[in-house]
Every structure is written in C-alpha cells, then in structure tokens.
Design a protein around this nucleic acid. Structure first.
Lengths: 143, 143
DNA sequence: GTCCATGCAAACGATTTGCAGAGTT
DNA sequence: AACTCTGCAAATCGTTTGCATGGAC
C-alpha cells in the first residue's frame, strides 16, 4: 500500500469519497506488519472511533483490494487477513496462536505447473503458505 | 484412503463403531476424485439415506481425518473440501465454478524456508495451491 | 446392558445485505 | 443538491455444539 496521502489521492482520482472512517482505516494499515483481520482493524479503531461499523471496515477493505492497495491472505481458514504489503512474498502462521509472519522468498520459478494442467487450466495465480509453531508457543503452548 | 473394507477394519481396531451412515460416507469417498465438501457428501447421500444428518457427515469426516484416511483441503476459502487421496499432491481450483483438479507434483524441495524463519518457527507443514479458469469456464464464463 | 453414534435444533462466527440517514463533493 | 458512504440490524452460510434417543457391540 502506498502511504496514506497517496491512497487518499487515489481515492479522489477514482471518484471515491474521502471520509474520516476511511482515513482511520488507512492509518491502521499503513506500515502494518501484523496481518490484521477485519475484526482486528475494527477493534483497534473502536476507542478513537466508537461509531465505526463492521460494514465500513469491510467496505473499505473491499475498495482497497479493488485498487490493488492491499492483498487478502487466505492462510487462515477461519477468517481473512489483510496485508498492506503487496510485494511478492509469502506467509507462515502459528497453528497455536494464529500469529502470521512474512516470508520474503520467491517460489514462482520453483513451482511450475505440469503441462497436463496447463492444457486444461488458464492459471492465474498461486498461493504458498507455511504452518508451524512460533517461538513463544514452542515454549509455552501444549498442543 | 484405503478401500472401504480396510477402513471398516481400522474402525473396529480403534473401537469405533461401524454404522450404516459411516459405511455410506466411506462409499461416497472411495476413489472419489471430485474433492467434495461436507455439503456435497450430504447431498449425494440424501436420496438413499434420507435421515442422514450434517452432524454425522461432519463427525465421520473428523474421524477419518484423525485416522489419516482423508485430507482436508483449504484451497477454498468458503468451505472445506475433502480428499481421500492422501498421497502428496497439490490442487488447482477454478475461481469461476469452483472445480478442483489434482496436480501431481512434489514441490517440497522447491520451497525452502529461509533460515531466518526457521530460527523463529518450528515449521510443521506447507500448502501450495493454484487458481485459474478451467476449460469450460474459459469458453462459457464471463468473469 | 453399556456406551458410542446419530440426528435434531440451536448456537456460533465471519461476512454480506437492505436500507434510511449522514457526510463528501 | 446529488450521490456515495456509513452504521444499524438482520440475513446468510459453513461449521460446531448440546442433548435426548437409537443402535452397535
């Protein structure tokens, strides 16, 4: 995601309105490396924006996705997470606590799809994710 | 998944009861290459087993997972799919119609996790999946 | 007869939708 | 003023849970 000011400009350019709610959500996302869920974002805004609604969080995330400013992570079957870093990278999630970390590696060349599949599919993308136990959970967890 | 008779034996060995419902679900799964969801299984059984419940489908899938007879696919964010083929392979899903195909390839060596991550995580597994448009949807779809 | 499994209904949790009123342009 | 956005409430949908009855052993 570009910085807040630049995204605001992108909004104006596209005819999207710049509302206090949208700015607040952008501020939460800017430089955010925690891979928040919609709920995480909602909760982190509740104090300063008590009237913020889930609808607005979801709407804004959808808009930012459309603009290509954030990416949706499908690493967690239970809920979607969002990442303002749209450069090519991957993720690992702790199966105990749900913590998600970045993995900066490019596996594009490494995972070639067999010819046979290419004959039957127009491949648009792929997704690689890892699962494990983070340091904390290795020491404290018990599952 | 082993064949129905063998899984029935595995059930008995573990003290799990062999019920008509469980057998029916096993029969749906044996050799099944369609990667059904719980709902798909439920629907395909409704006619011959009108009293079959979702609870039983979910319970049985859970049991089969525990026994390592099937694997749960997380390729579809909307719902879980199940695969009786537990050998190492991957999948591709058509983003239009949801059809899932097998990809028989082993990317284990290809996707090495950076040292830096290994220091912070005990990696237990990974997941690689592809997305695209199947032949049918390339010709007929419009998204 | 014991105990696990089934099936119904209700609960749950993430996400989506309908819509009236509010705010941006 | 026009038109989008917000926020509330309700709906949706896959999955889980509580529990009484039923069936496998």
């Amino acid at each position: 995601m570009k910085n807040v000011d630049q995204v605001i400009r992108a909004f104006r350019d596209r005819g999207y309105k710049v509302t206090p709610q949208r700015i607040a959500i952008l501020e939460v996302l800017e430089g955010n490396k925690t891979h928040p869920s919609a709920d995480d974002i909602y909760v982190s805004l509740r104090r300063k924006h008590p009237t913020m609604s889930f609808t607005t969080v979801y709407n804004t995330l959808e808009t930012l996705k459309e603009l290509g400013e954030i990416q949706e992570l499908t690493i967690d079957q239970r809920r979607l997470h969002y990442d303002p870093d749209i450069t090519l990278h991957h993720h690992i999630m702790c199966t105990q606590c749900g913590h998600i970390d970045d993995i900066f590696a490019d596996y594009t060349q490494a995972i070639q799809v067999p010819e046979e599949i290419l004959r039957r599919f127009h491949v648009n993308g792929h997704s690689v994710q890892f699962y494990g136990l983070c340091s904390y959970c290795q020491d404290h967890g018990d599952a």
